[in-house]
Amino acid sequence: MQEILAIVRMNKTSATKKALVEAGVAGFTAFKVMGRGKLIDDPAVVAERKDKMMSMAGADEQDAEMLIDGFLDGHRLFPRRLFTILAHDEDVSKIVEAIMSANRTENKVGDGKIIIMPMLDAIRVRTGEAGEDAV
């Protein structure tokens, strides 16, 4: 048994849910979380990201620019969605591929992370089933 944690962009939540269902995942949990990944060192990519975010900003450009700069320099956290999935060992690669397909973008940054961890045990509360049967 494995636990899969997938941290994805908020705007990819529906696509991720759909991909998990299509991959045959029996169930999963999703949380709203905040975080940030590795900072970008390429000034051209940072400028491109800033221009795109500024074009989406509302009326107060000065406040928007301060927030955007905070995101891009690592001082502010981004909203993300964290999916937790319990999986049988043989299903892990199919689930990971489904998550990657649903979340890969051309943005060159920020598409998310997938973490796979071994599980010691799981117990289904309703029936008392344990181990693989509970997944």
Rank of each mutant, 00 (worst) to 15 (best):
M53H: 10
I116W: 02
L5A: 07
E106M: 13
R9V: 03
M1W: 06
A87F: 01
A47H: 12
R76A: 09
D121Q: 06
D60Q: 11
T105W: 01
M56D: 14
D121Y: 06
R80K: 14
H75S: 12
A30F: 05
L39H: 12
A19F: 00
D91K: 13
L39E: 13
M34A: 09
T105Q: 06
F31S: 08
L67F: 09
A64I: 02
I95N: 01
G27P: 03
E90W: 10
R81V: 11
A44F: 13
I99S: 00
I7C: 02
L67P: 00
N107Q: 09
I115G: 03
I115H: 10
A30D: 08
A102I: 00
T127W: 04
P118E: 10
F78E: 12
V8R: 00
V25Q: 04
D60T: 10
A102D: 01
V46M: 15
G27F: 07
I123V: 06
V109T: 09
V135P: 02
S55P: 09
A30S: 07
G35Y: 09
I116P: 00
V45H: 13
T29R: 13
R126I: 04
G70H: 01
A30V: 06
N11F: 05
A102M: 00
R104M: 11
D91V: 10
I95T: 08
V135N: 01
V45E: 15
D121T: 07
K108F: 01
G131R: 11
A98Y: 00
T105C: 01
M53S: 11
S101G: 14
E106K: 10
P118N: 10
G74E: 09
M34T: 06
M100K: 15
D121M: 05
K17L: 07
R9F: 00
M10N: 05
L67S: 09
I123M: 07
T84H: 06
K12H: 08
R49V: 09
T13S: 05
G112S: 04
R36G: 09
